[in-house]
């Protein structure tokens, strides 16, 4: 076992790991930050997306020991300082961008990464960027709408074509 230390949501943390401990397990089992979900274990579903040094990463395919010392941000670190929902989180609630909530943490983290790179994405750019995140409940309609709304765009008239 090796003690791995990193910064998670602004705080320095550490937990014991085996060589095979994944970042997702480090967060969930080691730190009890269970907002990061594991839906597939094969890097397909995206429910486990977190930010590592500002970049979106599927935490089920990264060894915890490989990101020792990194600055990690999870869904638990996305609310405003006063505890209220951040802009993207609020847009997801306003536009019914979630149902069962299981894919939601990964969706929010991916959306945050997109908007950091591209503050006013088109519908196509949003859909393309979220291709690594599967949602089974929403048919993606309201997720795409929420992400565009979070970027400050008017979504009242969005429809196909």
């Amino acid at each position: 076992m090796t003690k791995v230390t990193m910064t998670v949501n602004g705080k320095s943390v550490s937990a014991e790991t085996e060589g095979r401990t994944l970042l997702s397990a480090y967060l969930r089992d080691g730190l009890r930050l269970t907002g990061t979900h594991v839906g597939c274990d094969t890097s397909q579903c995206g429910a486990c997306v977190v930010h590592v040094d500002g970049k979106p990463v599927k935490s089920c395919t990264v060894f915890a020991q490989d990101v020792a010392g990194a600055d990690v941000r999870t869904i638990e670190g996305m609310a405003n300082a006063d505890g209220s929902l951040g802009v993207i989180q609020q847009a997801f609630q306003d536009h019914h961008g979630l149902q069962c909530g299981f894919c939601t943490p990964g969706m929010v983290m991916s959306a945050a990464a997109l908007l950091a790179e591209n503050p006013k994405p088109s519908e196509h750019e949003v859909r393309h960027y979220l291709d690594g995140n599967i949602c089974r409940c929403t048919g993606y309609h309201n997720i795409v709408k929420a992400v565009m709304a979070a970027s400050g765009q008017d979504v009242s008239a969005l429809a196909a074509e």
Binding site: L33, M78, L85, Q93
Partner: peptide, 12 residues
Amino acid sequence: EDIRFLTGKGTY
């Protein structure tokens, strides 16, 4: 229910 799901506080 969205509030807990959006903040990582759901309990699955």
